[in-house]
Amino acid sequence: MQLNLERINVGSLIQELLEEGLQPQAEAKQLEIFLDIKLAPLQVITDPLRIQQLVNNLVSNAIKYTNKGNIKVICQQLNQQEWSIVVADTGVGISEDNKANIFESYFQVYPAEYPLESVGLGLAIVSRIVKLFQGEIDLESTLGEGSVFTIKLPFIK
């Protein structure tokens, strides 16, 4: 995997992806997606395809594992060195025991409940892309209450 860098408006990219690809999936489950790009950097040098993969995989998982409530997607500049994408849901959450393995290929937290919907690669791909960008990913989750994935990416000059 390699990066194909170009200058983009990352907030607009995320908004378009949500509206065109992910909103219908959420609406089918009567879930709302809230997008906050007020503090998103206007121009970022990045790989738009990889950013789409990150957002698509995280939001698709949030939709899959959320039966009621909402999903929040926030893109913002943190400081002069980095920016972030946050995906928060009100879904089933992830136990402390499973957090250590969640980014491994083919690992599934709930294989019995979602046997045909997932093979356990989405978060492994997210982790690899974040490493490719030399960024960080953080997970906060409470079983039965939901999860928050925070990706921090450095500005590429």
Rank of each mutant, 00 (worst) to 15 (best):
V109M: 07
F133C: 00
K99D: 07
L3W: 07
G69L: 11
K131L: 08
E136V: 01
Q30A: 11
E96V: 11
I45D: 10
I63S: 10
I14Q: 02
G11E: 10
E140G: 14
I129N: 00
Y110C: 04
N79G: 14
Y110L: 12
Q52K: 15
I137C: 00
L123W: 04
E104Q: 15
L78D: 02
A40N: 12
I14G: 03
S84I: 05
L78V: 09
Q80I: 09
V59A: 11
N67P: 01
K68F: 13
V148E: 13
E6Y: 04
I156T: 14
Q2R: 15
G135W: 03
R7F: 05
I156A: 06
V119S: 12
K157H: 12
A88R: 06
L35R: 05
I51M: 13
S95C: 05
K29G: 05
I129Q: 02
S141L: 06
K157C: 00
P154G: 11
I71S: 01
C75I: 13
I151K: 00
F133K: 04
R50P: 00
G122K: 01
A88V: 13
K72G: 04
T90H: 09
G93P: 12
L13C: 12
K72S: 11
K152E: 01
L132K: 12
A28M: 14
F149W: 10
V87P: 03
T66K: 03
D138V: 09
T90N: 10
A40F: 01
E19Y: 09
C75D: 00
Q134A: 10
P154R: 09
I33E: 06
I102M: 09
I37H: 05
G122Q: 02
F103L: 14
L116P: 02
T142K: 15
S118H: 08
I137R: 01
E32G: 03
F34V: 06
P154C: 05
N4A: 10
I94T: 06
K29A: 10
D138H: 13
Q77G: 15
P154M: 09
D36W: 05
V10I: 15
T66C: 14
L58H: 01
V73M: 06
L35F: 11
Q52H: 07
F107H: 15
P48R: 12
I137W: 00
I74Q: 02
I63P: 02
T90M: 13
A40C: 09
E136K: 14
F107G: 07
Q81K: 09
F34Q: 11
Q25V: 05
V119W: 10
T66G: 14
Q52Y: 00
L78T: 02
K72F: 12
F149E: 03
I45F: 13
